[in-house]
Nucleic acid binder design. Sequence first.
RNA 1: GCGGCGGUCGUCUAGCCUGGACUAGGACGCCGGCCUGCCAAGCCGGAGGUCCCGGGUUCAAAUCCCGGCCGCCGCACCA
Length: 587
Amino acid sequence: MRWAGLAGDLYDKIIDLAKRRGYFWPSYEIYGGVAGFYDLGPLGAELKRRIIEKWRRAFILDHQEHVVEIETPMIGPSRVYEASGHLESFTDPIVECTKCGRKFRADHLIEEKLGINAEGLSPEEMTRLIREHDIRCPVCGGELGEVRLFNLLFKTQIGPYEGNIGFLRPELAQGMFVAFKRVLESLRGRLPLGIAQIGRVGRNEISPRQGMIRLREFTIAEMEYFFDPEDEEGSCPWFERLSSLQLRIVTCDEKKQGEPPRTYRLSEALAKGVIMHKCLAYWMGVAQMLVESLGIPREDIYFEEKCPEERAHYSSQTFDQLVRASRWGWVEVSGHSYRGDYDLSRHMRYSGADLTVFKPYPEPVKVRKKRVIVNKAVVGRLFKSEAPKVMEALQALDASYVEERLARGEPIEVGGYRVPPEAVSVVEVEEKVSGRKIVPHVVEPSFGVERLLYVTLEHAYREREGRVVLSLPRDLAPYQAVVLPLLENDERLVERARALYERLKSEGFRVYLDSSGSIGRRYARADEIGVPAAFTVDYQTLEDGTVTLRDRDTWRQVRLPEARAVEALRRFIYSGAKLEELGEPLE
RNA sequence: GCGGCGGUCGUCUAGCCUGGACUAGGACGCCGGCCUGCCAAGCCGGAGGUCCCGGGUUCAAAUCCCGGCCGCCGCACCA
């Protein structure tokens, strides 16, 4: 078989380990399973929680002066998804061949055969076009059936009335856009503003495969970062921190040429125009750091620019962050889109709400302006009941146009009315303007958490002397330590080990006690689920109160006083301390 | 969604072609006991299986046939 090499084996080994030890497995198994859904087991849920914590630290806590986290509902009314464009663009018109059963994109077929733009046509219109021009199945020549829409949005009903349609969110972004005004207010109106959210989304994929990589329901960690497009300096105040960070990038053109990624410093990618905006570049840098901190080496990560035809409807530049995986090659773990003002503008139009941000000038500016003054008495007498309409139309006119007409003594034509010059005048006024309203632009880094979890496991997987060692970064491991009595049948050792276990537990560590089987077997069990540290209580413990501490990755041990175990574990897990710094090496 | 291949204790698998002695066997893992002074040792005992689901053929189905579900691979799809 084609995948029988090492690569395929690794995938199988991860799946096997995940099922056996409780990282993840397919959902609803006892009922035969449903494609596209996965459960996380006890270890998987904890690992995911810790990955999310890292994300939260990288994107929110490190930038908390400008970035906040919110939670919004999973179910939204149809209006929201009309405004977002998902009802329109997240839908594919599909037509099926009645002979061979193959499915095709109806709009693509029509565009191809007739050379017309089929976008936006109704299914009925497309079906009619197909019949009229006798478009047939491009594969077998069979007759095509009715065009129907397949929408990737999960649909439901809000409340008892059938007309009240709701949709399960396909991304988190709309929650942030819809709540934008509130969040901005609660933060007293300042830009830049990052609104982050972590939550589950649903996409009704036509045929999901690839296990944890392509799910119908999954968790996204996402931020909408709003900034003033004209404020070059202030839009991304942390940029300097990462300006010399190296990213591997393939542009759209290079991808089409089949060229490999090039390495750029962040500032260089920006200067050369590879990345269109500083903010987009900065958050890609943060993404790079985050993924590396999951134990994935730099050479297994790169960013790929999406070509215009591949991009989502809202985006003007998008990069995917890819991580090497065994079976499916490069897997997209995050997407980085420049969404411009698309979403806020759409929501302003559809909802009528004012989602602009007031941008104060450093000093209020005095502006001389011409204003149209309407003589209401004249207009009223002339137009009677039509007067309010006429007045409104006059007010809306450009002052310089009115001035021009007046200078020539001509009547003003507006909205089908002729208004005599004596009904209007133009005056010059001085106004104090202290700022203006702008629609902020948005960049969006968005991560698939289950994909991060999967690639983290794959990159942590090692084999050593026929045993499996899951070398997860220490601070990601679901259990930080195991406590082992050297022998299981000596109550003094077991008791002493239990006391240490209780102490570590009360200090907030996630830790377990294992006293069954030989000591070697217990080390092996711990290695396999990725426990970084093992404390062993032996006979010397009973004499002088010292225990041994074993490193999962080197299998080396040091001896240290039991009383220092808590501190040593803390340094080992969270400060990256080397084992040798924590005690006396054992031979 | 199409086509190919597959689905047997927690895991990996034997059995399927050629239906019956299959009360579905083994290994690993798991649980209990013994043993064990540091890396999956040994001994004894034990639990664990809707043979993916439904239907059909047959005296008899894990085994043959049909449909469905799920998985893998290829094609299509994947804002």
